[in-house]
């Protein structure tokens, strides 16, 4: 016996807020419950009571803010807004809407001086020397993401909370993340949800419509959007990844389902090329017992928790 698919909520214009492929629709009540238990357990097992989160104004971090507030209460959540000079002002406004809606603590840390301090600014070289002034947007974007990580781990100490991750399954699988930047966290509640599922859960959790409907962007440079940069839409990419990864369909089967060959090939390459981002770095096996190889312990055990 199966149940009917849930309806996608409508926006003020009467149109569906987002596209939700049938096979990706989840039971949001169950997801909410599992994630709340997960968040509480991660904190308890580590000996923490609070969470620190980097809030960009986008849907991923907005959803995680709601999930954390739902699990442990907004008073135990601290959101850090970390705009760069080139970040979209609308992103900051959206982040502030989320903070106001939740009633959690927040602060703004400008990262421009940190990025400029390295690459230089306005023809004045930074720590990188004159060459740094010519750095590509990609280098600056990755550097900025790692500066944000540094800020969050510092606030982890001052706020006394664990850093929660906000990366989704789609971007993780295609490697659309900065290693040790936005991908760094103590735990991640939405890392097994595709972008379409993030939208579905965000709508169910009451994330503001404007945050749900705007074009997803890493906001690493002005005007950047994920879908334009990558060249495909999230619903279509999510479907392909779902059938390829979760349902183990091979390339021929995917083609028979109607996915374009070039699209399949390109995503195959992205997934394979980013495998390293999803794993701990390999340690050269030299001694009798090596972490991650033949020294295997759960992350938390008696004695693990901060006291």
């Amino acid at each position: 016996m199966t149940r009917a698919l849930p309806a996608v909520p409508l926006g003020e214009d009467g149109q569906p807020l987002f596209v939700l492929p049938d096979e990706l629709a989840i039971d949001t009540d169950v997801a909410r419950r599992v994630i709340a238990d997960f968040i509480r357990s991660q904190l308890r097992q580590a000996g923490f009571e609070r969470v620190v989160l980097g809030l960009s104004g986008g849907i991923d971090s907005g959803l995680v803010a709601h999930l954390v507030a739902d699990a442990i209460g907004p008073e135990r959540l601290h959101c850090v807004l970390m705009p760069h000079r080139t970040s979209s002002p609308a992103s900051r406004a959206d982040a502030e809407t989320v903070v106001a809606g939740l009633g959690c603590s927040s602060e703004i840390v400008e990262i421009s001086p940190m990025v400029d301090g390295f690459f230089g600014f306005d023809a004045r070289p930074g720590a990188a020397g004159p060459e740094g002034l010519e750095a590509t947007p990609l280098r600056r974007g990755n550097f900025g993401a790692r500066m944000r990580m540094s800020v969050l781990y510092d606030r982890s100490v001052t706020w006394g909370g664990l850093v929660v991750g906000t990366g989704n399954k789609t971007e993780s699988l295609i490697g659309y993340t900065t290693l040790y930047g936005d991908s760094a966290s103590a735990f991640n509640p939405i890392g097994d949800l595709y972008k379409s599922q993030v939208r579905q859960l965000a709508a169910a959790m009451g994330v503001p419509d404007g945050v749900i409907t705007k074009a997803p962007s890493a906001d690493l440079w002005p005007g950047q959007t994920d879908e334009e940069e990558a060249g495909f839409s999230y619903p279509e990419l999510d479907r392909l990844l779902y059938w390829r990864i979760d349902r183990r369909r091979n390339v021929d089967e995917l083609a028979a389902m109607g996915f374009e060959i070039a699209f399949i090939a390109r995503v195959e390459r992205l997934v394979a090329a980013s495998e390293f981002k999803r794993q701990m770095p390999p340690v050269a096996k030299l001694g009798p017992r090596t972490a991650g190889v033949d020294y295997l312990y759960p992350r938390r055990r008696p004695g693990s928790a901060r006291t």
């Binding site: 492929p21 096979e23 990609l138 659309y176 940069e229 495909f232 839409s233 109607g258 981002k277």
Partner: peptide, 28 residues
């Protein structure tokens, strides 16, 4: 599988081949 597939009109006309390869953060 196809029969149950959700048709996404918005993405149907996407021409993936004509777009530039993504720079993407941390391109390998």
């Amino acid at each position: 599988d196809n029969a149950s597939r959700h048709v996404d009109a918005a993405s149907a006309h996407l021409d993936t081949a004509s777009r530039a390869e993504a720079a993407g953060p941390d391109a390998p």
